[in-house]
Amino acid sequence: MASAAFEEIVEDFEFLDDWEDRYRFVIEEGKKLTPLPDALKVPATKVDGCASQVWLQPEITDGVFRFEGESDAMIVQGLIALLRKLYNGLPVAEVAAVDARAEMARLGLNDHLSAQRSNGLRAMIERIRAVAAEAAA
């Protein structure tokens, strides 16, 4: 149920042999993101449960879910980029149907993230799902 953009990431990961290369790829994806304006880095957009600073700014237009995000940690910034590829452009009603943990597992990330990073990833996914569920209701 992943988007075409996320499927491209899965294909790219298949060509990367070791985890240093995969981490570098995730970090490079994060570097491509446009920084959030400081005005959006407020308590309402901050994600609790992350070891690093994380802000997610959702936007729902005509029933389509999108979000921007930023983190002060390079690997987390990369995870935001991967989540954007997974969720952005979906109808808001379909966001809850995405099994983000299973999709990320296709990349092997569940086995190679620290416990703190895994908790942060889970917190970001929960925030995305909660915002979409509220908008779909």
Rank of each mutant, 00 (worst) to 15 (best):
N110E: 15
I128A: 01
W19F: 05
A81F: 05
R24I: 03
M124V: 04
V131Q: 11
W55V: 06
L33V: 07
V54W: 08
A73M: 08
D72P: 00
L86S: 11
A135I: 10
E7R: 10
S3I: 05
S71G: 04
S71I: 02
F6M: 10
R24P: 02
V92N: 01
V76P: 00
V131L: 07
G78P: 02
N88W: 12
V47D: 01
V42D: 14
N110C: 12
V76R: 05
E94T: 03
D62K: 12
R127P: 01
V54P: 00
A130V: 14
V26A: 05
E103Q: 14
Y23H: 07
E8F: 02
R84W: 07
Y87W: 09
D62Q: 13
V92S: 01
L113V: 09
F6P: 00
D99G: 09
P35C: 02
F65M: 02
R101A: 15
F13S: 08
D99P: 02
V10F: 04
D12H: 09
V131K: 08
L121E: 02
P43L: 11
E7K: 10
L40C: 12
D72M: 03
P91N: 09
A132M: 01
M104D: 04
V95L: 13
L82C: 11
L79I: 15
L33F: 10
V54Q: 06
G49L: 06
A133Y: 01
R106W: 04
T45I: 05
R127T: 04
L107N: 01
L82V: 12
Y23P: 00
A2C: 08
A136I: 03
V95C: 13
A137D: 15
F67S: 00
P35V: 01
A100I: 05
F65S: 00
F15Q: 12
N110Y: 05
E29N: 06
S3P: 01
L16T: 08
V76Y: 04
A73H: 05
R22C: 04
T61A: 15
A100N: 03
R84Q: 15
I128G: 00
G120K: 02
V10D: 04
E29T: 03
G89N: 09
E11M: 12
G120M: 03
A105P: 02
I9C: 09
G69A: 13
A133W: 00
A97S: 15
F15S: 13
R101S: 15
W55A: 04
V42H: 14
A135T: 10
D111F: 01
S52N: 06
I125W: 00
H112Q: 11
A5Q: 12
L90A: 12
A136V: 06
K85G: 00
A51C: 07
G63K: 05
L40N: 14
G108K: 00
N110L: 14
E68K: 13
N119A: 15
V42P: 07
W55M: 05
D72R: 03
L40V: 12
V98I: 15
P58E: 04
E8R: 14
E11Y: 06
N88Y: 12
M124T: 01
